[in-house]
């Protein structure tokens, strides 16, 4: 199925956000970053493993009636660095955005170190990572110093 054919199966959205060029298989991780579970009642289309000229295969997410903030957009870069964001208003692309890993990643990832203060029950410390390297992506816990690499990020996403 070509992207054109895929677009035939999902209607255009009037207002909202289209996240395109997500690496194949990462759409669900993107939804987790955006805390979209389906219970919010947002009309959402998730296309996975569709053909892409740029990526071979890719995932696409269309969310109606929700415009992503720049903070949300950048958090997507943690699992989908190639993603492009189109903000749609009245069926036309109002704004195109590229994602970039933010310098501070706050409250998105769980520190893998069990004795990190951010994992202490009842203390309510919000996890915080800083970028130690962008390519390859290396993050470091601000509290305990633990280093995490690109391939570990997805499994550390908070539910």
């Amino acid at each position: 199925m070509s992207p054109e054919k895929a677009s035939l199966t999902v209607s255009k959205i009037r207002d909202g956000t289209v996240i395109d060029h997500i690496p194949a298989g990462k759409a669900l991780a993107v939804l987790r970053i955006l805390s979209i579970t389906g219970k919010e009642g947002l009309r959402t289309a998730v296309l996975m493993n569709v053909e892409s000229r740029k990526l071979g295969r890719k995932d696409i997410i269309k969310i109606e009636n929700r415009e992503l903030s720049s903070k949300e957009v950048n958090a997507i870069a943690l699992v989908a660095p190639t993603a492009t964001i189109n903000i749609i208003r009245n069926y036309v692309v109002h704004k195109k955005l590229r994602v970039e890993v933010p310098d501070d990643i706050v409250g998105i990832l769980k520190c893998p170190n069990p004795t990190c203060i951010t994992n202490k029950p009842r203390e309510h410390v919000v996890s915080r990572f800083k970028v130690a390297s962008r390519s390859p992506l290396v993050l470091q816990c601000v509290y305990c110093g633990t280093i995490i690499r690109e391939d570990e990020v997805e499994k550390l996403l908070m539910a």
Partner: peptide, 25 residues
């Protein structure tokens, strides 16, 4: 015993916090 406890304390406290050992860090 938890890594990051001193930094967390410093974020809470207005007065200076001195780390006398936080876990293995």
């Amino acid at each position: 015993k938890n890594e990051g406890a001193a930094l967390y304390a410093a974020e809470i406290a207005e007065h200076p916090v001195i780390n006398a050992g936080d876990g293995k860090q």
